[in-house]
Lab assay of single mutants.
Amino acid sequence: MEVRTIKVFTTVDNINLHTQVVDMSMTYGQQFGPTYLDGADVTKIKPHNSHEGKTFYVLPNDDTLRVEAFEYYHTTDPSFLGRYMSALNHTKKWKYPQVNGLTSIKWADNNCYLATALLTLQQIELKFNPPALQDAYYRARAGEAANFCALILAYCNKTVGELGDVRETMSYLFQHANLDSCKRVLNVVCKTCGQQQTTLKGVEAVMYMGTLSYEQFKKGVQIPCTCGKQATKYLVQQESPFVMMSAPPAQYELKHGTFTCASEYTGNYQCGHYKHITSKETLYCIDGALLTKSSEYKGPITDVFYKENSYTTTIK
Rank of each mutant, 00 (worst) to 15 (best):
E144I: 05
G29S: 11
Q270G: 02
S171M: 12
F56R: 02
C112I: 06
P60C: 08
E144W: 07
P248S: 07
Y269M: 08
C149D: 03
I315G: 15
A115L: 01
I6P: 05
A87S: 10
N110R: 02
V189S: 11
I301S: 00
K229G: 15
T159C: 13
L121Y: 03
V160R: 05
F32A: 08
P130I: 04
Y137D: 01
T19D: 15
K298E: 11
M24C: 13
G53W: 13
T10K: 12
G210Y: 01
L88C: 09
N89R: 14
N147Y: 11
Q98V: 11
P78K: 11
L59N: 14
K307I: 11
L186H: 08
S279Q: 03
Q175C: 07
Y73V: 04
T258K: 05
L121W: 08
E215L: 05
Y234M: 09
Y306R: 05
A146C: 13
L118A: 07
Y306C: 07
F80C: 02
L291G: 03
Q196G: 07
V221C: 02
G194S: 06
L118N: 06
T169N: 00
I124C: 06
L212W: 02
H90C: 12
L153Q: 03
A262R: 02
N178C: 09
E204P: 10
I277F: 11
P248A: 09
V67S: 15
F9G: 08
Y214W: 06
Q122I: 00
D77S: 09
H74A: 06
A146Q: 10
T313N: 15
G143P: 05
Q230Y: 15
A231Y: 01
A117R: 02
G29M: 12
C149N: 08
E253R: 10
S104I: 09
M24I: 13
V185M: 09
L119C: 09
A150C: 02
M244Q: 02
C225Q: 04
T75I: 11
P300T: 14
L65E: 10
F80I: 06
W107P: 02
D180N: 11
H176A: 03
E264K: 00
T198C: 13
L200K: 11
L133A: 00
E204N: 06
Q230H: 07
A177P: 01
I124W: 06
K7R: 13
K95L: 12
G161P: 02
A150T: 03
A205K: 01
C182F: 05
Y28F: 14
K93D: 14
T19E: 15
D62C: 12
G288D: 00
D180E: 14
F242P: 01
V21I: 15
H176R: 11
T43E: 12
Q197W: 03
A231F: 02
I105V: 06
K106E: 13
D38M: 12
T258F: 01
I105T: 07
